[in-house]
Simulated scan of single mutants.
Amino acid sequence: MRDSDELDKLVKVIASALPDDQKFIALHEPHFSGNEWEYVKECLDTGWVSSVGKFVDRFEHDLAEYTGVNHAIAVVNGTAALHICLKLAGVEQNDEVLIPSLTFIATANAVSYCGAIPHFVDSEMRTLGIDPLKLSDYLKDIAEIKQGDCYNKITGRRIRAVVPMHTFGHPVDLDPLMELCASYHIELIEDAAESLGSYYKGKHTGNFGKVSALSFNGNKVITTGGGGAILTNNESLAKLAKHVTTTAKVPHKWAFNHDQIGFNYRLPNINAALGCAQLEQLDHFLIKKRALADSYRKVIAEIDCASFMVEPEFAKSNYWLNTIVLNSPDEMKREYLLEKLNNQGIMSRPVWTLMHKLPIFTKFPRMELTVVENLEMQLINIPSSVMLGMTRVNAEGLE
């Protein structure tokens, strides 16, 4: 069979797992079927629409309870959450921060906001996230401990933190990464923007870093329109996070005093109201998303040229974005498949341009990046919206 024939067959089996009565199927759409209208209307009726209100408090409480962390601080978006996480972890100007080159640009941007240096590292196939074993070998060559801190022997800069990003909702292998951080005195900060509802060895992502970041953008598993959150089990860091994200204003009945540089990052009450309603439905959303992923897995198993990205054996994924993995890196095949799918009204996209290839980041340090440079030509995201999993859930009584 010619390559194009096999790719055409792949398009057909993907289409077979999707509704046949829609001219266009988006990559990931929000789904509103709960108390969204009621809660948002309450904000409008009462006038509590800005950065304080009962829904902000409730959303933070409910997030902490759902994820199992001690504290959640709601902010305006996931990038803001990650920015503050880095500052809370002590990242300073000219520090280096180890981040995957295979990530959304927000990860690298947040490092840059701190005046720090993104240092790009490779990923592994089974998780699409940071490869802790390869990173360990790399640090043996370039890192040294001086006065309790880790330094890059080549650049002379301090390596302050590592930021694993749970790609498309699939958790990174965190245990060996945490051991590595302990050995090299490096802070672990989880970029959990895509992994609400995902678990590593039975514990929700966001519990493993000193601080962690979530995102509630319109295309995430649940949405607040925009929005994000800082997660931590450290009470003092949680108090500091809330303080600096509210312009570092010292509490007073009328005076405006600020005791440090702060940020106007707090999530508005009207957005938090949307989030509360969405979070009430999260378990049902995850059932539908996992059902859709299972449908894809079964039909794509019939294809020789590609596989479906499944959760690693130690994890339970939210399958935020379903992903096809071509068997070999081939840009022409990837582009052929993208064109066929999108022309058929099945929205699909390649993975993000690798960070180290963007002109703004080409001069920053990086390790050998063979795996991600191959993955860039192998990965394609396909439709993943909650409602696409409803047909199978209803038919098989999975709820």
Rank of each mutant, 00 (worst) to 15 (best):
M1W: 01
L7D: 04
K9V: 00
L10R: 11
V11L: 13
K12Y: 04
K12A: 14
I14P: 06
S16F: 05
Q22H: 11
K23M: 08
K23N: 13
F24I: 13
H28W: 01
P30V: 02
S33G: 14
W37R: 14
C43A: 09
D45R: 12
T46P: 00
T46Y: 06
V49P: 01
G53D: 07
G53K: 05
K54N: 12
F55Y: 15
V56F: 06
R58F: 03
H61Q: 14
H61P: 00
E65A: 15
H71F: 15
H71T: 02
A72K: 03
A72I: 08
A74R: 04
L82P: 06
I84K: 03
L88T: 02
A89M: 05
A89N: 09
V97S: 06
L98V: 04
I99M: 03
S101R: 07
T103N: 10
A108D: 09
A110C: 08
F120H: 08
D122W: 05
S123T: 15
L128F: 14
L133R: 08
L133P: 00
K140H: 12
I142G: 00
A143P: 11
K153C: 02
R157V: 01
V162P: 06
V162G: 06
H166V: 09
H166R: 06
T167M: 15
V172Q: 04
M178Y: 04
E179S: 13
A182H: 11
S183Y: 11
H185W: 03
I189N: 00
E190T: 06
D191Q: 07
E194C: 07
E194G: 02
G197C: 08
Y200E: 04
K203D: 02
G206R: 00
L214S: 03
S215P: 09
T224H: 11
G226M: 11
G226L: 12
G226C: 12
I230S: 02
N234P: 02
A238G: 12
K239I: 13
K239W: 05
L240C: 07
H243P: 10
T246M: 12
T247C: 09
H252C: 12
K253H: 10
W254D: 13
Q260E: 15
G262D: 10
Y265N: 10
R266Y: 04
I270T: 13
A272E: 05
A272F: 02
A273Q: 03
G275C: 10
C276M: 03
C276L: 05
A277N: 09
L279C: 08
L279P: 01
L282K: 04
D283C: 01
H284I: 03
R290W: 05
Y296D: 05
A301Q: 11
E302P: 00
A306Y: 07
F308M: 11
V310W: 01
E313Q: 10
K316A: 07
N318H: 07
N322V: 06
I324D: 01
K333V: 00
R334T: 06
R334P: 07
E339H: 14
E339D: 15
E339G: 00
K340V: 02
Q344G: 09
I346L: 13
M347N: 11
R349V: 15
K363W: 01
E368N: 13
E373F: 08
S384R: 07
S385I: 04
S385G: 08
L388W: 08
G397D: 07
E399D: 15
